[in-house]
Write a protein that binds this DNA or RNA. Sequence first.
RNA 1: CGGGGAGUGGCGCAGCUUGGUUAGCGCGCAUGCUUUGGGAGCAUGAGGCCGCGGGUUCGAAUCCCGCCUCCCCGACCA
Length: 582
Amino acid sequence: MLLRMSNLFLRTLREDPADAEVPSHKLLVRGGFVRRTAPGVYTWLPLGKIVLENVAAVVREEMNRIGAQEVLLPALLPREYYEATGRWTEYGDTLFRLKDRRGADYLLGPTHEELFTLLVKGEYSSYKDFPVILYQIQEKFRDEARPRAGILRGREFHMKDSYSFDLDDEGLRRSYEAHREAYIRIFDRLGLEYVIVKATSGAMGGSASEEFLAIAPSGEDTFVRSTGSDYAANVEAVVTPAPPARPIEGLPEARVHHTPGTPTIESLVDFLNGAGLGRTFTAADTLKNVMVKTRAPGEKDWEIVGIGVPGDREVDMKRLEASLAPAEVALLEEEDFAAHPFLVKGYIGPGALQANKIRYLVDPRVVEGTAWVTGADQADHHVVDLVCGRDFTPDGTIEAAEVRDGDPAPDGSGTLYTARGIEIGHVFQLGRKYTDAFSLDALGPDGKPRRITMGSYGIGVSRVVAAVVEQSHDERGIIWPRQIAPADVHVVGTGKGEQIEVALRIGRELEERGVRVLVDDRKGVSPGVKFTDAELLGIPTGVIVGRGLADGVVELRDRATGERSEVSLDSVVDTVVAIVNG
RNA sequence: CGGGGAGUGGCGCAGCUUGGUUAGCGCGCAUGCUUUGGGAGCAUGAGGCCGCGGGUUCGAAUCCCGCCUCCCCGACCA
């Protein structure tokens, strides 16, 4: 069916919406692809709906290719299923909850592990049935504390979620790998620039997990890349290369100095450099000891732990938490210090920690033979030349220090720099958390039940639409990759003669040849308006039927490159078909 | 939850400090004429409980009190 601008349900806006900040939000609204309905909730208008379906179609094809089967579960779910896994409470305020007329609790599905597990349990019970991969493309609901950036982070969004069910770990690994490769094909086909980073599994209790991040400054996830390779990782996953150990012999003795009024690293460095010690100190020569407490899951008591990092770096709480997961972490409070008088705030050193059996974990840069300025465990005193391996022995290393631009890459390829990404896909070896909760077993050939192991895999379909726009636009508008563009060709008729009729005829002929067409057949609209709209809408190929028609030529335009050329009216259909077929 | 900003036709905004008569501008929309290769011109017109509630006042978009909502940053969340 030929899309015609004269009756298309579309209104483009000349100005950016006041509430939009990021390019995808501005352009998708201005181009009439979406309209905001409620905070974080968007209506998809005809052109947007086409794009959304095009993305879904690519996802669907690649999922089917790995043997996944599509189903559709309800979004409206009774509380009981999520009660069984504890997520009714664990999900907290992010869960959309509602009650039916009888007062029974329901929720709008944020993700469907429970339902898929039960679905499989209800149908399958033999080892011969497995493995199986099921998926759906559906609206998900999450009552985000702060929806933002248009459809990049909404409260209702389209997501492809799939779930693999395998008899053993090796099967899970294969299902995971199949998804990973399918995702690579999907995002490649969509023309996205992305990285795959190792994700920290967090509280979900899984093992292997990777995120696909579309690179964009507007992304919410920070990750690091190397200048010398395609290394990419979450900040939490960055491993600090340890320098080689150094010989201890010949290093100066550790000496305690009176350092009045130096509770901060900065004041300490200033003091030392003014103390006439015959050398210059920097913050990196100091060892900062940050006290935290951790509590393992299910435990009641907190354990105090000392974290030693070079004084020029802050402790990155997210990295620290990831390193200690699944234990909880908190900074020490005043009463904790009060309860442990050997902890002298501002002057804590390894000595007191080890003397009092406090676990002491240090940054990987603190290796044997390195000498440090650190606290001497009494007010206004620091010790200089405290040598690791001689004067103190840490209980281990920990990734807790912040990662900075210019740090060496873990793979030795160059230096790290930070970038931002939009999480568009997530693959996750869940394991047996949900199959345990619902006792999903398959009867093995030996007649004994085997607990099924599971993976879950998501793609934010609506978010992908926004991510594509984030990566593919210019100051004039969107530049859709052909695979998901609302049409292949935008035929614009401009002029007061027969141009519009000719444009429609070209459009119909192209459509008969299998090309997806949008025709601007609006009458009384000036050429400038039509060109501007065409650039905003971002359809890859343009055909302008205008003033050249008198000479039997029309103009071809490439939205991405801006290239223009003239082609005879007789050959335009063949030419465009050739362009579209690549 | 903390900080900042904002609610005025479909969209973007001004007016509010220093209350005053028909609430204004641009875009869009409707009708007519002109115009037609880069967001056209002229003319005429439709469209607004000025977020909600209360108060002050002869009179409130404007001042006061309370509430609600939205946006941005952070916290939180995958």
